[in-house]
Design a protein around this nucleic acid. Structure first.
Lengths: 188, 188, 188, 188
DNA sequence: AATGAATGAGCGTTCATTCAT
DNA sequence: TATGAATGAACGCTCATTCAT
């Protein structure tokens, strides 16, 4: 008559669960749309509802976590010696396509502290790279890295509601239109 | 189980109610966000739930009605002799600021027949005006009116989630970035 | 600017509408199930909601009307010289198959005065014919016309929820089981 | 927007709730008719709406649960050495009187997989007992256990809409009529 | 620390019924 | 007299959130 609890692997499971939840969220929201029930994420991650809440108290926390994963990649690329501003923009665009379902969440919650922190970090990466490109004359005169943030925001926002299959093409066309206004972006 | 309705002003109330509902929807969604309860719209319009559903069976119908109101204005402007493509784009941008809360609804429902009809009408207005502007060399070489649709879509989508107070400034900056890629847009 | 009311053919339309409504009710309830909206009946009959209500203030009124149409036929058959009790039962069974969707309504509303009046008339027809059959020894000893009412009720009730395509076969099997308990029912 | 639930007795309440819901359903549907609101069942069971839906996602699930409770009893009786087919039929008839409000639900949903499974189990019990009775010559020649299923269906369906107080008497009269067609049903 | 059943407010939607025209 | 838009209570259902285990 001894009870056999399903599993409770103790503290070690924490980080694993966190990662599993992020991956599950990417999959679930991409498949079932932005307002899929959070319970579906927990189920997909093989984790209880309560654990989801412990790690991510709301949708915004989940979205920020996804973008932070992406941001780490982006910062790494930016730090790589030969990388250009254009490379960074291209990666960000590519990431947006894979995190489309979270974009709106983060835009809506732009006043949230966690989002603002993320935003500042992204802004810093771009500003830094922009300064480099600027020295090489690779940006349009009279523009700033804020313009690039705006452009990226527009592209990301538009991609966020595009059918997955068309995202790449749309992104290319969109940057085609924005290119002349921003500059080459390719530092030598 | 007998119902005692407060008032029933009869069928004449129909068109009035329709207009009241659209106005209420503009107000409610703008104040309370895109997923304000439809019941709030009915209440604000001073109309029963059932009447809301008779006029607008779903959110998309409401959004399309708002955009169709706007489109009539836009078609009138486009038909006015001296008007330029830029005038049309400016009006569309201005309208988007006032209908921000409906933009996402219509983008999400892009496969819906009612939306597609609206989309075709808008596309026609722009294509027509684009052809004029093209003759005067007011558009960037190699671009088409589809590029303008994309640009308008991006701007509108981005405005849709911007705080009302910043929309005008954002729109201006956005078109500033898109201008070089599209052309002057001002037919002589 | 003269208003053109759809149609209002005056009092003459009354009886026509009544018949159209009954026919529409048969069709609609048979297709869409017992709880199809009454508005669908009005629409199918090409008649306003209000007119439906004038003629038939509730579902029961509609059901009773259908059964009264049937009852007229049944009384005519019963009055025809050579007809046997079995003929009457067969016709009633056949009618039940065509009015299946109304049977439950009438059973549920058995306490309603209109239903009781219908019930009494049906009972009278059967009792009369039963008396005839009884003289010829065509009914099982110890049974009464009340037993026949019960049997008919059971068959009708069961048919009321059977798929249309199986009703005839079910009816036959059912009477096959009930036959020995009731008697031949065929007066010479 | 924080919720303050009255109580949450935790997972242990699960099985208790399930039983309470079935009991509540029996009571509520019997008192208030077949289409009593499900919320009334939840309230009577002292359980949240969501819990009702977790246990029984629709009316059919509730009806099947009730009949399965009954079926367990029936199978037990059938397995008892001295029991006759008639005993089984009598118990089923008795059970139908207590579950009257669910009968129609189950008949209407006859295509549902859960109902079909129940149906198959019931059919099996009757077929088994029928075979026994058949050996003793207790069934009418030319009939099969399918005829018994039909008869039981008719009786149950008719009972389902009979006033509680009259059910026992009606059942007796009904089987009185059906008896001669089916046989004695009493194995020695 | 993890689980997942329980909770219940709130949503969209339906439809019997009324009544100005 | 006929029309059909207006009404609004009530339903089924979902899901973010809590908390006993």
């Amino acid at each position: 008559m001894t009870k056999v609890p399903k599993t409770n692997r103790g503290p070690v499971a924490g980080p694993e669960n966190r990662a599993a939840l992020i991956a599950a969220a990417r999959a679930v929201f991409d498949e079932r749309g932005l307002d899929a029930p959070l319970s579906a994420v927990a189920r997909k991650a093989g984790v209880g509802q309560g654990s989801l809440y412990r790690h991510f108290p709301d949708r915004t926390a989940l979205a920020v976590a996804v973008f932070e994963e992406n941001l780490v990649e982006l910062e790494a690329l930016a730090a790589r010696p030969g990388s250009t501003l254009r490379d960074v923009v291209d990666l960000a665009t590519y990431q947006a396509q894979g995190a489309a379902a979270f974009i709106e969440t983060i835009i809506v919650a732009r006043a949230d502290a966690r989002v603002q922190e993320y935003d500042a970090r992204l802004r810093a990466v771009l500003a830094d790279k922009w300064a480099q490109a600027s020295e090489s004359g690779a940006v349009a005169p009279g523009t700033t890295s804020d313009d690039l943030m705006l452009a990226l925001g527009m592209v990301a926002m538009f991609l966020s509601h595009a059918p997955r299959a068309q995202r790449a093409e749309i992104a290319e066309r969109a940057w085609g239109l924005l290119g002349p206004g921003l500059g080459r972006l390719e530092a030598p």
